[in-house]
Simulated scan of single mutants.
Amino acid sequence: MQIELSSKQKEFIDKYIKKSAKDIWEEKLINLKGIVLNGEEDNQQIEDKINEWILVDIKVAEENTRPYKCVCGRSLRYQYVIKHRILDITYNLGCECVKKYTGIDSKLVNRVLLKKEELNSMVDEIIRKLNESEIDRQLYLLDYDEIPNMIRQQLLIGLPLTDKQLEKVFKVIGKDNNKKNYHKKVHNVMQELTKEQLEFLNKLNYEDKQPLIISLMDGKKIYNMDELKGVELSNIALRKVELNLPFTDKEIRDIKKGKKTEDIKYIEIASKKLNKSQYEFWCSRMSLNQRKETAKYIVEGTNICDKRLVRGKSLDKNIRKQIQLGIPLTEKQKKSLDI
């Protein structure tokens, strides 16, 4: 479904992007003749300074068609509607006849046409990107103070930037090549995010948004709820888990700290459940990581190996003693015993 442009969006496009052929014609003539305007002239004064010939419009037909006519009778794909300001006569002309009637070089006419087509193409690209929700992938650029004011206004009213505008922005916010490439990488990362992920990211403040963008670029680990059992999470961190987004370095440190606290809690409870022989073996013969893992099993009463399952098997003496004492096995130990 096509998105309908708002009145503000239409006004912005008409004012800053979609110039008329007449406006472009005047700009080219001003540059060509070296005319200086002070910015206070009205349309009539501008026309007086430029030329007696005014370009009213350029009509462009479909490719491989020539539905328009020049006054000379030639069929045209491109028709230039030219008005003589003093005589108040309008002519429909082809490129060559423009030069014949006005004395203005056809190269200028072609430049006007190319510029108009370029601007029309920009409008088409903006509307296409708007329908593809590309604006959601570009809103992070508003965090940079360096972006030009017109670009900022375009983003603020919900209009995405064209590829050419993006290149300009990357150049402004990244003066050296490394930074320029960095912002291109950020742009590429944004293309991979879902609509829900983008909505979440765009609602974050700068301090939370930038670390998340860096984590996305660095491919930081994405946690699931099972891995975070028992760890207290902030609302932002919880939402990241739900949306399959990575944590920042600080959040990862907090998670590890939370897990450590959880491990210590289990170790304290487990140590009280063990008898003297079990406790001595557990503390002296098992590594810290093994104690952390088995502490939870001791509390839960799981992963304890039935002695009958290993009867007759050749076992490491420590594992054999561990089984004899009824101390739970780690997952790695269970796998090595194939039980």
Rank of each mutant, 00 (worst) to 15 (best):
K164Y: 07
K164I: 05
Q165R: 10
K168S: 11
F170L: 04
K175T: 08
D176S: 03
N181G: 05
K185G: 03
V186E: 12
H187R: 15
N188K: 09
V189M: 14
Q191F: 01
E192T: 15
E192V: 10
L193D: 05
K195W: 13
Q197N: 02
F200N: 05
L201A: 02
N202Q: 08
K203H: 09
K203W: 07
L204W: 06
N205V: 08
N205A: 04
Y206H: 15
E207A: 07
D208F: 04
K209V: 03
Q210T: 10
P211D: 02
P211E: 04
L216C: 13
L216H: 10
M217V: 01
D218I: 06
K221D: 04
Y223P: 09
N224Q: 14
M225Q: 14
D226C: 05
E227P: 06
E227R: 13
G230V: 12
L233V: 10
S234P: 05
A237E: 01
L238K: 15
E242N: 14
L243E: 00
L243W: 00
N244T: 02
L245W: 03
L245I: 03
T248N: 00
D249P: 11
E251R: 03
E251I: 08
R253V: 10
D254E: 14
K256F: 00
K259D: 02
E262K: 15
D263G: 04
K265Y: 04
K265V: 05
Y266R: 12
I267T: 09
E268Q: 03
I269W: 00
A270S: 08
S271R: 15
S277T: 03
S277W: 11
Y279M: 08
F281C: 07
W282R: 04
W282H: 00
C283G: 05
C283E: 14
